[in-house]
Structure formats: structure tokens, C-alpha cells
Design a protein around this nucleic acid. Sequence first.
DNA 1: TGAATATGCACAAACGTTTGTGCAAATATA
DNA 2: TATATTTGCACAAACGTTTGTGCATATTCA
Lengths: 341, 341
Amino acid sequence: MTKSNISIKELASILGFSITTVSRVLNGKAEQYRIKKETESKIQETAKRLNYTPNQFARSLKLDKSETIGVIVPDISNPFFAEIFKNIERGLKQHGYAVFVGDSNDNTELEIDLIKHFVARKVDGLVIAPVGISSTHLSQVFKTGIPLVSIDRSFKNVDFPAVTSNNFDSAKEATIELLKNGHRNIALIQGLNQSQPNTDRVNGFIQAMKEWDIHPDKYSIVGEGFSIENGFYQTDRLLNSANPPTAIFALSNLIALGALKAISQNGQTIPNDISLLTFDEQAYSAFLNTPMTTIEQNKVEMGNMAVKLLIDQICGRKPKIGSIVQIHSKMHLRESIKKIN
Amino acid sequence: MTKSNISIKELASILGFSITTVSRVLNGKAEQYRIKKETESKIQETAKRLNYTPNQFARSLKLDKSETIGVIVPDISNPFFAEIFKNIERGLKQHGYAVFVGDSNDNTELEIDLIKHFVARKVDGLVIAPVGISSTHLSQVFKTGIPLVSIDRSFKNVDFPAVTSNNFDSAKEATIELLKNGHRNIALIQGLNQSQPNTDRVNGFIQAMKEWDIHPDKYSIVGEGFSIENGFYQTDRLLNSANPPTAIFALSNLIALGALKAISQNGQTIPNDISLLTFDEQAYSAFLNTPMTTIEQNKVEMGNMAVKLLIDQICGRKPKIGSIVQIHSKMHLRESIKKIN
DNA sequence: TGAATATGCACAAACGTTTGTGCAAATATA
DNA sequence: TATATTTGCACAAACGTTTGTGCATATTCA
């Protein structure tokens, strides 16, 4: 382990060279500054032997960069974000960055706070899975020149890049799966209204219904958040309504968990009494009471792409304005959809 | 958002005071250095108005502390660690720390690498959920004076504090639950052999069996890792053995998921064909095909305690040597245990 | 009124780097 | 041999803070 924290000054005096020369060698600029091969290797070797590591603060202070990235997610205990984060962290580590993480707890104020905190610590870039539907605070920080990529959600008329799933297409495809199984009275339980992934998913759903000539009176779109609570509450209402749906389409894993709770509390079973389909594959999806049909977002690809988009910016490759990368999702057909009629 | 990044020098020259005075006021040392109230408020006000934030690097360089903590977990996408982490992050944020996170991916080499990385960045402390069974690298870094707390796992003969669950007691209690339901031929699928939580849980299990006078020939202890794969493989073997158990006790949520997979692939159901009991409560535990009886570790308390133990060290309160704090777990009795005979 | 003390602030060094520039010594060129 | 060029390295400033110390001026005390 790094013990004594020797400074470049001591190292230089031990070697008998100037601080300048040592610094240059250690930063790979030996050739550029015409330093003798022999000198170079001597410095390299003693530096390693004495376990020299440069003081990051001094470096950062001088170079005005921290080799640090800030990542902000709404809820790190949500496996969806945790897995994306895992891939982001891995990618950034490979590029030599250390990563700060902040949990905004689904709260825009906290998100803004965290951004300020990270900016104050001069992160070289930010990856944010934004909470709300507003993007002004993101645009602001991006305009100050800090590389930024938004993940999971994108925004219109905005300069920074984003990586999302192909929400429209996969929601449409999933809806068609329900339609093919004979469902018409379908309830969609949505997440945060007006957020981009929600809007895209809802639109994909509507488009599918339109293409199958299902009149909007036939189906319903309810809910207002990606949470368990929303899933529970809305499902409970739907089941006890005058005209309960034959299938529920949940727009997140948490909504689905809430739905499961409500369905079981109402003494119903899947898929006999009601069919269920949800966004977000999880390790447990196949093992639920009735294995769940899910839409799996490619979290590995999303993480990798976020890293790429960020590094591109840091290296000076400006993002194309409004560039949104869509990662393809994949359906897992299981037994939670009943074939009717 | 922090725009112009004004320095203390500029701030001072705008105010007409010296850098010294400005610094002292902004660090709350106005009184100590007898600075006029009027001067103080004038400085405070303009600092706020101009949105001054001190350069962290310069501060850290001068003060030789980073106001940063490094947290290392084996797998952030495992909800168990993610939730603990969430609480740690929240606590540290409240104390003004930014937190680096590293995912060691269940790999000791990577864990050591991350530690070095964080040490090089002069974190003020480390919270580590250690991977392996060795603690020498932890002791080493602790001896260099870096505050450290181990979480989820503890070690013997070691100077740094740890927070774990009351693994022995809760494993014993859970085992007794199985015994009370008439099970005798019980298989324990363990996690990482020789790791402390595993050992404690296994010992709790054995102790229960002993108190109920069950001969070791009657039950079996198998497995060698907290992973899904281990859970799957061992369960599959057990189910197809000459004398399959009537109940399986899984020592982690991942082992349980693997067990679920094997049980379903073997065409068996819980609890009719086999009973299952597992460590780690998850949001989905109640919604599995047969709601699962689980032992819930108190992740909130574990996180909070880790923060407390770390801050204590940072503030100079030396930990009592070998201090291990055990957080109490709680059983959730559900339907995955069949009453036999 | 003169000395002692209190008040209010500034000088300058130090933290550990990076880097533009300058200057000898060594070598090449004419 | 004298000059030009190349080679090899060092000086010193700068990054933005914190802090020990010192020094005027103002106030109190005898």
C-alpha cells in the first residue's frame, strides 16, 4: 500500500535531477523535452521503487482537471439504475477516472444540489439519470463547459447527448403482443408523466392500439410515477373498477411490483384473472408467481454508450446537437399473458 | 449553477480586503482573528452574491484532506449492497463528504486496486464490503492512518471496526423455524467458505441442529459462494441426490434465486416438494411463486452505523480494537416452508 | 500624558505539481 | 579553428488556498 507519500521534490533530490526533469519523465514527455534515455529509465525505476504517486490535488490544481466523473441516479437501490451504474463505473475506471456517485432520491432539488457539489469539486464530466421533466439545470451546467450526458431520459431542444432505450418501439411491440393474445381492454400504468421515456412508451402503446383499430374508449392510461406505490394504487383501483381490464401494462419494474401486490391482495392470480406485462427485466422476473413477460432494456449497452458519449466530449469531440442514442430492448415472453378468446 | 469560478484573490480585490481576511471570514474564523462584524458581513454577503466557491484542490492541497470518502462494494447491482450503499451515501453527504464508489466485482485484486486508487486520491476514509477472506490489505491501509470500516464482513484479530448482521443468531433462529415445522433433512447452501458472515451463519445453523439433537449425518452443508450459479448448481445436485432434503436454507438472495431456478427446472414446487428459506429480504420476496420466508438484514441501520464508525475515526475517536457492531435482523415468515409430519 | 493593551487587518510562506523559457555543454558544420 | 546547431537539463512562476506572525492604529489604564 502507498506508505510514505514521497513528493516529487524528495524524489528529485534523491535522484539528483531537477523536479522539472522528473516531472517530465513521469508524464511521458521525456522525448519531447530531449531527456536522455538513461536519465529517463533511472527516474522511472526509482519512482517505481520508492512507490511515488503524484499528489492528485497539486496536479488537479495546476492542470485544472480532476480526472473524476460525477454520476447521479434517482435511486441506486433500484436494480435498473444500479446495473447501468455498474457498467458506467467499469467503463470510466478503465479510462482512469474515479467516480463520485450521488443518489438524488427522485428529488430534483437534491439532483441540483448534487450537481453543484460535483461542479464545486471540478468533476471533468457528469453522467446523470435525471429525475424530473425539466432540463434547464442540466443545460445550464452544460453551457458552462462541463461535459454531460443524460441517461435513461432525453430532452427536446437540448445540446447535450443522451442515451435511452428504444422506448417507443418496444412499448409498441409489447402492446401488440397483448393484442395478438386477444386483449382489448388494456390498462397502461404509466410512470412520470411528460418525462421522455414515459411519453415514448405511452405513444408506442397508443400507436399499436391505433394500428389495431382499438378505440381510445376501450383502453385506459393511468398513473403518475415509476414507483411501487403508484403501481399498487392504480392496480387496486383498476381491479375494483366497473370495467376492469383484462391486461395491465406496467411501465417499470417498480410499478409491476406494486401491481403484483394489489393483484394478490385482491385475491386474483396471473394470468388467469389478469395478464401483466412490464418494462424492466430483473433477475427474479422468471421466478415470480407466474413468470413475468418483460421488456429488458440493455443496461450494459446503455452504460457503455454513456461512457463513450462522455469521453468523446472530454476529448473535445463535440456532440452533435440533440444527439440521442437509442439502445434496443428485448422482450422476454413468459407466462404472465393469457390468451383469451 | 456555479458560473465564473471566481477566486478568493479576485473576491478580495473586489472587496478591498486582503485574501487572508476573506479566507478567515469564510472559514468561520472571524471571531478568532478579531475581524470586525461589519467587515465580516460585508465579506459574507459579497461572497454569496458572486457565488464564490473555494477551489477544492487548493484547499485539499493545503489542508491535506479531501473531504471525500471511498466506498467499495463487491457488486453494486446486488440490491443488498446497493441499499446499504444508499444509506452510506446519504449519511456521508450529510457530513459534507463526496463519495467515490468502486465495484470490486467480487475480485480481491480489483478491491486492492481500488483501495490504492482511492488512497492516491487521498480519501479521508474508506468503507469497504470486503470480498475475500483475507484482511491483510485492509490492515495495511488502516495502519497507514486511513480511517476504515468494514461492512457486512468482519475479521478476527484486526484493529479496524466492522458492522455486520447478527448472523449467528438469525441463522439459528431461522433453522429452528425449519425444525419446528418438522424438517430434519435440511440442506444448507453456504456462501463463501471461511468468510465471517458465512461461518457465523453456518455455526448458527449447526448450533440449532445440535440443540435439537439432530445428528450431522442427517443434514448437509454444501456450496461455496454467494452467487446465483452456486445456488443453482447445488440445488440441482441436492434434488437429484439419493436422499434429497425436505428443506433448503440459502445463505443469500442470489443463492436463493439460483435455487428457485433449479427447483423449477426439476419440475418441483415450493413448498409442496421442497421448502426454502433464505437470507436477504428483497422487494420481490413476497411476490415470488410461493412468497418466500426470509431473514431481512437491517440495511438502513448497517449503513448508518458504518457512517458513524467512520466519522468517529475521522474525528479522532479511535475505535476500540476489534470492535464489531452487530445489527439485528428480522424474519419474515411466509409460505415457503411446509409443515411436515 | 505616556505606557500598556486591545483591535483590525495584511505579508508572505507553504502545500506539490506543471511548464515556458533559458542556458550551458556537446556535437556538427564550414 | 570558429561558428552554428543540437542535446540535456534547471529556474522560477503559477495554480488557489490556509495560517503564523507582525504591525499599525485605537483604546484603556495609571
